[in-house]
Amino acid sequence: MLEIKDLHVNVFGKEILKGLSLKVPPGEVHAIMGPNGAGKSTTSYTLAGRAGYEVTGGQIDLFGEDITGLSPEERAAKGIFLAFQYPLEIPGVSTMNFLKTAMNAQAKLRGEKELDAAQFLRIVRAAAKELNISEDMLKRPLNVGFSGGEKKRNETLQMALLKPKLAILDEMDSGLDIDALKLVAEGVNKLRAPDRSFLVITHYQRLLDYIQPDVIHILSGGKIVLSGDKSLALQLEENGYDAVINKAA
């Protein structure tokens, strides 16, 4: 599915990722943990193709094809989805209109048929209901005035509708209350499939209780310094990054 090889990335002239390597096979959930400023969001933006995240070395293979030269929309069409750590507010664009535009744009880029209005409504309403997103929220401008938790639920809704191959969840759990956390995690778990992979970025072991990862990676100083199974999260919770990283070194 995804293979990142010796990735070096500069952000505004400063090297942030310094030889990151990572492999996520199809159907697996990999978690990335790491201290503030380690480069987790940088990794997710780079995967999504954000301007200003300059790849100076290495490559990113998706299904065996290097995607580093592709635009964000081309990557989205290939199945990359980034749930933002800080979802954006876009005044003047209703959530509904945005969802429809995005779904149709992806269908078009993939050469698939666009949904008609009735199909679209039915699909969106069903998905929104599962995430406890009201009709009113769908009518409002995208994320404008949404609470932190509502924004994250909205990201989950987009993921559910766009059905990506690789979903990158950047701190999906930040700002969520327990109920919302369960909703979001359920949303993710429902999407787990043999041909779909997840990269879950988080600071807290709690999220990983709900979304069971196959592998946990620790990102520090711009590279993966340690990978292991679920027990790694517990060790981190108890001893902190420094101790765990030093012990491994």
Partner: peptide, 14 residues
Amino acid sequence: ANALFFLRARGIPE
């Protein structure tokens, strides 16, 4: 630019 990236990351062409 942030809004533009957000929309493009959802597959909407530039």
